[in-house]
Amino acid sequence: MSLVFAGVCSHGPGITGRSAMADPDDVATLYAAMDGMREALQASRPDALLVIAAEHFANFFMNNMPAYCIGMGEEYEGPIEDPEWLGVPRTLVPGAPDLSRRIIERTLQEVDVAYAQEWKFDHGIMVPLHFLTPRYDLPIIPVNINCQGPPLTPLHRAWTFGQALRKACEAVPERIALVGTGGISHWPATPDSGRINAAWDREFLERWAANDREGLLAYTDEQTYFDAGQGGFEIRTYIAVAGATEGCTAKVHYYRPIPIFAVGCTVGIVNLEAQA
């Protein structure tokens, strides 16, 4: 079929784990935006959801770190974190191994991607799924871009990876939804947690919504580290979605810096009919 839905959202563990510590209005508005994303996703009637994540050492370590990996499992368990700490119960999430295999085979025509038949989900996938597929009844295909352990894949390769995923989606008969998850500027899991560069975030999101390839690929890791923290490296997930939806504009439905959640919380949906 093709891509029937594409969007991006935040995945900070505080979104579910520290909601009681947050301003009720922040919680209510963010959760409403995530509910809106779920409704749009459901309306697209997907057969499977590809989640482009920036996993946090749940599966991959510096002994064998793939720049890109796609899951090919029958099922996935998550979260690896203490469920009470994360605020998300541990569960099994259905996979789609045959569809995964076909998508991987097609993606390999363009990009050397690793695959994994075992994969444990951390907050990077479980927090989005908590809102987007709360009954865990939609097959998930996890996709990872290494955003945590340098050396990291260049941004232009993340764009190319997104393009390759799009071609793979077009090559299969199933209806595919795509969600990229990551923070924009943030200094997660450090004493600086809660620091957010909202101006930098808004500029990035403008470029993302305009599908501005040149603008998105102009960032350097050195400057991103300075302006947007370690967490800023996760822009690769948003850039991959932009590459997968090249030529289409998007709408940022929600952006609000929420320090207790450690990120500028974001929900964005691509208009697959709109040309940039």
Binding site: F57, W85, A189, T190
Partner: peptide, 28 residues
Amino acid sequence: YILGVNGQILMHYAAMCGYTWPRYIQAM
């Protein structure tokens, strides 16, 4: 944290050890 453990690894380990978020931040 001072020894250089990646925050994503450390955050999960602290949670495994029963640290609440404020206690984790304060420890660092």
